[in-house]
């Protein structure tokens, strides 16, 4: 029984991280219909900045803030420089461009901080089955996700973001600055992605540290439905806890296979994810 509780708690904190990174993918997908493969690299660069700032100032929280701010800015820059010119270019172009950006940023990180691992701090004491740090991770994700949902639902900015996502042409007609909204969407998503990175990176940071997390985050987003932020969060938590059981009860080497099995099982029944809208045909 204790094993069961322990595995659930362990899965909850890793699931929260999948959910957060998945959420950042969903925000971008809703806004620009792009799956952002560079998301782990954007989060990586923010985490490395946090590492350097924390090392220089001795304050975890300065590093934390610097990472979120820098991550957001990075998202804005990427949207303006790379994604905007590709808005009519189709799904594959965006995948390849963001993939290129992933390789570039990981290489740059390796050049600056080397490919060797460095210690990367937790926010709070990490000791305990469900430590203050784990609690913080779950709370931070809940707060960020709620914030994003409220923003979408109840603010004028959120309304404009949704309008842009729903139909850019109509949004433009009613006076929404569509371009600006896309940039805001990317910034917002990259900020949430940076948060996920900060939570996922510890204890060690190296250029490929977030690759595995990204794969599971994308799996979570697909599980939950790429259109649906709430679905993605549920998807992330389900996946995190499920994989924790597999790892603890059946063996760690089965985790990637289990992720595949879960995904195939869900998509076989619901091709647009657990909570995704059945895609209307886009003409």
């Amino acid at each position: 029984m204790t094993t069961f509780v322990n595995l659930t708690l362990g899965g909850l904190s890793s699931g929260a991280v999948y959910a957060a990174l998945g959420l950042s993918l969903v925000i971008i997908y809703r806004a620009t219909r792009v799956v952002n493969f560079a998301q782990p690299a954007l989060a990586l660069i923010s985490s490395y900045l946090a590492y350097s700032v924390t090392k220089g100032t001795g304050s975890y929280w300065l590093g934390f803030v610097a990472a979120i701010v820098a991550g957001t800015l990075l998202g804005v820059v990427v949207e303006r420089l790379i994604i905007r010119p590709l808005r009519h270019a189709g799904e594959l172009s965006a995948i390849i461009a963001t993939l290129g950006l992933l390789l570039l940023l990981q290489a740059v990180a390796g050049m600056i901080w080397s490919n060797e691992p460095h210690a990367f701090a937790y926010a709070f004491d990490f000791r305990g089955r469900f430590s203050p740090s784990d609690l913080f991770a779950v709370l931070a994700v809940v707060v960020a996700a709620t914030g994003v949902l409220l923003l979408f639902k109840f603010t004028p900015l959120g309304l404009r973001l949704r309008a842009t996502a729903f139909n850019p042409e109509v949004a433009k007609l009613v006076g929404v600055r569509v371009g600006a909204m896309l940039t805001v969407g990317w910034g917002l998503a990259a900020g949430v992605g940076s948060l996920a990175g900060l939570l996922a990176t510890p204890p060690f940071i190296f250029p490929t540290v977030l690759d595995e997390v990204f794969v599971y985050a994308l799996t979570a987003a697909v599980l939950g439905g790429l259109d649906n932020p709430l679905g993605t969060i549920v998807g992330g938590l389900v996946l995190g806890i499920g994989l924790s059981y597999v790892s603890g009860l059946l063996g760690a080497e089965l985790v990637p296979l289990a992720a595949l099995a879960i995904l195939v099982a869900v998509l076989a029944v619901r091709p647009s994810g657990l909570f995704g809208r059945a895609t209307a045909r886009r003409v």
């Binding site: 322990n6 595995e212 924790s244 790892s247 760690a252 990637p256």
Partner: peptide, 14 residues
Amino acid sequence: TYDPANTDVTPQLS
């Protein structure tokens, strides 16, 4: 046993 690709060793140590 652990798998180098999976950095969570909590189940094993538990």
